[in-house]
């Protein structure tokens, strides 16, 4: 080991020690100080009841499957509609001008209204038209509300991605004789989509959480089930259980997405 390496090894050891000590100090402070708060015993009893946790966990996990289901069928719809809106907003042909206007208005409306409101309005409003079963299902109209809202966001992200691809790429494709359509499909979009994957992953994580908002219009998914338990057991622990279950899914999902992105980047450089 030369002098430089020895120095760097010493530096590394030092950083590790400092990081370890400071982490320990913070954790110790939380565990020692929070229980000193006057209301701690009451909070612990109503939020961190081990027995309630164990009792409600299996049912809440099953209720969470409903969230996963709604999420799973919403994602392809959102990506499809988002792409369609993004392309509509970029349409240049004069005949497609109405489509452009529609895209712009669509994005303005659904980005401007809180998700909960859209869910209420569509989830209660449309079935109110007196549709026959199964077309009055809150699953359908809740999904529609989520899809409409999220595809507006995804469309904007995609559009920014499309605009970030340098004009020289388009020129190169056009000069080879490719049509506008093929240029978009084979040259611009693949690059644009890769660039916005991180932003869209964030969007999907947010969606995974917002699925729980459908509980307001009926489906007994995890949040509503936790609410039922709360009333039944007069205890808030089921909400903590729900939070833990969400984290178990969203944290690994984001880490996995980061991993995929890095791998893709490494493969091309």
């Amino acid at each position: 080991m030369n002098r430089r390496q020895a120095y760097e090894a010493a530096q590394r050891r030092r950083s590790l020690t400092v990081a370890g000590i400071s982490t320990l100090a913070v954790v110790a402070a939380v565990f020692l100080l929070v229980p000193l708060a006057p209301g701690w015993p009451a909070v612990r009893a109503s939020f961190f009841d081990g027995q309630v946790f164990a009792e409600t966990f299996p049912t809440l996990l099953r209720a969470f499957l409903i969230d996963v289901m709604i999420f799973a069928w919403s994602v392809p719809l959102i990506l499809g509609l988002g792409l369609a809106i993004a392309l509509a907003r970029g349409a240049r042909a004069p005949a497609l001008f109405p489509l452009r206007i529609f895209g712009a208005v669509y994005v303005d409306i659904f980005r401007g209204v809180p998700v909960v409101l859209t869910i209420y309005l569509i989830g209660f409003g449309v079935p109110g038209l007196g549709l026959p079963r199964p077309w009055n299902s809150p699953y359908i109209w809740g999904t529609v509300a989520l899809v409409l809202t999220y595809s507006a966001y995804v469309a904007e992200v995609l559009r920014s991605g499309i605009e970030s691809v340098h004009a020289s790429q388009r020129n190169a494709a056009i000069c080879l004789g490719l049509t506008e359509r093929d240029t978009m499909r084979y040259v611009i979009l693949p690059q644009a989509i890769r660039r916005v994957v991180p932003a869209n992953m964030n969007m999907l994580v947010a969606l995974q959480k917002d699925v729980a908002l459908l509980s307001f219009i009926g489906p007994v998914e995890i949040l509503r089930q936790a609410g039922i338990y709360k009333s039944l057991l007069a205890n808030f622990t089921p909400y903590v259980v729900a939070a833990v279950i969400f984290l178990l899914v969203t944290v690994p999902a984001t880490r996995y997405a980061d991993y995929l992105l890095n791998r893709d980047r490494d493969a091309r450089s």
Partner: peptide
């Protein structure tokens, strides 16, 4: 211009290969 451009090859200073 599609049929015209395919008959004329052009190469730019900045290569402009498709990176993906």
């Amino acid at each position: 211009l599609g049929p015209v451009r395919r008959r004329i090859g052009i190469v730019f200073q900045s290569y402009n290969l498709f990176p993906h």
